[in-house]
Design a protein around this nucleic acid. Sequence first.
DNA 1: CTGAAAGCGCTTACAG
DNA 2: CTGAAAGCGCTTACAG
Lengths: 342, 342
Amino acid sequence: MLSVTIDDVALAAGVSIRTVSRVLNESPHVGAETRKTVLETIERLGYSPSTRARALASGRSFLIAMVQDDPNAHVIGALQRGIVEACSSHGYELVVRPVHFANPDIASDIENFVRRSRVDGLIVLPPTSEIAAIPERLTRLGVPSVGIASVSLPEYPCMLVSNERGATRALGQHLLELGHRRIAMIEGPAHFRSAQERKAGFLEGIGGSMPEAYRREGDYGFDSGAAAAEALLSLDQPPTAIFAANDIMAAAVAKIARERGVSVPGQLSLAGFDGSDIASMITPALTTIRRPLVDMAQAVTERLLDMISGARASWPHERIDLTLVHGKSVGPAMDDPRKNGR
Amino acid sequence: MLSVTIDDVALAAGVSIRTVSRVLNESPHVGAETRKTVLETIERLGYSPSTRARALASGRSFLIAMVQDDPNAHVIGALQRGIVEACSSHGYELVVRPVHFANPDIASDIENFVRRSRVDGLIVLPPTSEIAAIPERLTRLGVPSVGIASVSLPEYPCMLVSNERGATRALGQHLLELGHRRIAMIEGPAHFRSAQERKAGFLEGIGGSMPEAYRREGDYGFDSGAAAAEALLSLDQPPTAIFAANDIMAAAVAKIARERGVSVPGQLSLAGFDGSDIASMITPALTTIRRPLVDMAQAVTERLLDMISGARASWPHERIDLTLVHGKSVGPAMDDPRKNGR
DNA sequence: CTGAAAGCGCTTACAG
DNA sequence: CTGAAAGCGCTTACAG
């Protein structure tokens, strides 16, 4: 498909391919005059070096992979935007690698992928980033990896940890301060660390306990949120506030509430998690906890690239505090919600 | 990072590397016994061939790229799922390449990317797939490309064209049959072919014309939909039906309508486009036009892979008919909407 | 059915 | 500051 190689450039510029290579790799050991000639020749011939050949010769593929298993398009989309941004500005390409969290052989699956594709590094996203066996394997393979998650796994040489527990704790306190006493939560899947963190923080925030009937487990999907909302709103003593562990489930609660004639935030305060687009698309706009996903993804990718270039072998894990975004779905508790026709 | 090479395998199996290569590439010209020995040796040594080396030697990178410029996470997410699915099952990796539709040098940008990365083929997504210069360049480079769009560009050796005009025509007719006469549309950006198609079809469906005041241009984003809705609902004779050219803008209309106390579908019928998750998340669930994005993406990727393998050089462009999904946001027109307090 | 040799297009110590 | 040679780990005609 292409004809121009480094040999053509060297020939035309009257230098050795070694010198062309040096110019390409921005080696300081090239005379200014020589460099100029080479660059002009490259331009004139329309030469672009083959990454395939560079890869084989240098041992670097200039490919990094994003390992994911999350059906939430908002979250994945934001993360991908940050990652690809950082990649592009450093001459790397981004390979997308979907995996299955539930696959017991997930670590082997990823190892095989790495051996085959020869990516130079991996960014592992939640919930896959919660599995310690993965960074363990990758480190043994000698391939740098970074993780984004809600908890810190020492196996990763670099991680960005979103302080989900702290944020949900603050949310719980906020609801308490608004006078809510009958507070419910729709949790994420119990085997996800993120779900555990969000629950633990929220419980701390509201003072440590919640009746069983007010705790429902969802799967971060819309339908599960709707089912949980139906159950909660059918209780004799329905909650005056519901925290759903992500925006999608919170949107489901909003929908069910509306169908049942329960006004938000008049009769029911509602909060979500993620700060995704959907939070502002529904009515009323959702109070939610914003994760700065684009920034986190970009930052962690920059660090990975530093590790690949050998600038450093690891980074202290960093914790990111999240912010509570006040929408219009949370208000003061009413004295007795039963008076209001529920 | 890895030590085992094809030489090690050949040595251990007592054959030449040529034979190992043949086994790897599933050549039929290998004795059953030999093949078995080689495969066992590969297994025992934990060997996986380097794609980098295969790429250089074979002229194929086993990489394909997805070229995109669409901030709509739902659309991109669905397309990516279909593409990556097809890639994985054929041993290809997917590289994500974001571009800027508005960049006048977009074709050069993509050409440079291809020369550098050596991807074996590209899948170009809307709206980028509406630019004829791109397939033109790629074909000249000798790199196969496929497009997904709302119109057929002959420059592409293969395209999947969603019949957006036909679908919006049907929607227009449907509104007409329900008795609507004051029908408005929030269009997409006028320089997008998809926006033109959706508008043209809809106009055909409602009988060919629409007062200027009932036509608003949006940018497919939420805020532009909200602004258009405000304007439309403030008219002396507000429309009894609004078609927004995508679900996100339709969601914005729903929100504004609710804020203004305009009931949907009681006082206002509302339809969107895309059939994305958000359509079912808002209340009432949106009537929308579903694009089978995952299936389309997967199908077009399969065809691209066929072209790469040399099975065929091009495909007749295929048109995909879309389906109208009946939500709860469209109903019969009322006799006189002004009676209802607007 | 199987092998020895050349080559894909670069980079990398090693010299000069 | 610059060059000749070897090598990265495969595949590919060409023979046998």
